[in-house]
Computed example of a mutant assay.
Amino acid sequence: MNANPIELPDVVNRYLEAHHVRDTPTALSTFHGSATVTDEGVTHTGTAAIGTWLGTAASEFTFTTERLGAERLDDTHWVVTNRLEGDFPGGRVDLRYRFTLRSGLIGDLTIAP
């Protein structure tokens, strides 16, 4: 089942919007205290580690993001696909942001092609 951005859970939309504009405090507020984020094969556990990741993720490159789609797997699992284009190696990649929600917040996020 595809979902347009309005149908995504509020916490997912808030994270995506905050991360896009690099608003680290707002993005961090969307995570459960024991959340994990896995990006580029590295897992960051807990809000301190996720805050560090948010502050440095993709900061060395300039890129644009286009949302290609979203999918609801069930009440707690959502996948958002974004296309990034910029000055990073390869210049273009489609990434899947796999969200697991816990207690109304993001419990786990995995970002991978």
Results as ranks from 00 to 15, higher is better:
residue 63 F to R: 10
residue 6 I to N: 10
residue 18 A to I: 03
residue 35 A to T: 05
residue 3 A to Q: 08
residue 60 E to S: 14
residue 8 L to M: 11
residue 42 V to G: 04
residue 82 N to I: 03
residue 25 P to F: 09
residue 24 T to G: 05
residue 113 P to A: 13
residue 43 T to E: 05
residue 36 T to H: 00
residue 90 G to T: 03
residue 12 V to D: 00
residue 49 A to T: 03
residue 75 D to E: 14
residue 10 D to M: 09
residue 20 H to I: 00
residue 31 F to K: 00
residue 69 G to L: 05
residue 49 A to F: 04
residue 22 R to P: 04
residue 113 P to N: 08
residue 54 L to T: 09
residue 69 G to R: 02
residue 110 T to M: 07
residue 17 E to S: 12
residue 83 R to Y: 00
residue 103 S to F: 12
residue 82 N to F: 10
residue 69 G to H: 05
residue 86 G to P: 12
residue 56 T to V: 07
residue 74 D to N: 15
residue 45 T to Q: 05
residue 95 L to K: 07
residue 2 N to P: 15
residue 29 S to M: 08
residue 48 A to C: 01
residue 88 F to H: 02
residue 95 L to D: 01
residue 11 V to H: 09
residue 18 A to L: 05
residue 110 T to P: 09
residue 23 D to G: 12
residue 26 T to W: 08
residue 87 D to G: 14
residue 11 V to K: 01
residue 25 P to K: 12
residue 102 R to P: 01
residue 105 L to I: 02
residue 81 T to H: 10
residue 41 G to F: 03
residue 89 P to I: 01
residue 60 E to G: 11
residue 75 D to W: 04
residue 64 T to R: 13
residue 26 T to C: 10
residue 62 T to C: 06
residue 10 D to E: 15
residue 73 L to D: 08
residue 87 D to Y: 09
residue 40 E to H: 11
residue 38 T to L: 06
residue 65 T to H: 00
residue 66 E to K: 13
residue 79 V to H: 11
residue 72 R to I: 12
residue 27 A to P: 13
residue 20 H to D: 08
residue 46 G to T: 04
residue 8 L to Q: 00
residue 57 A to I: 04
residue 106 I to V: 15
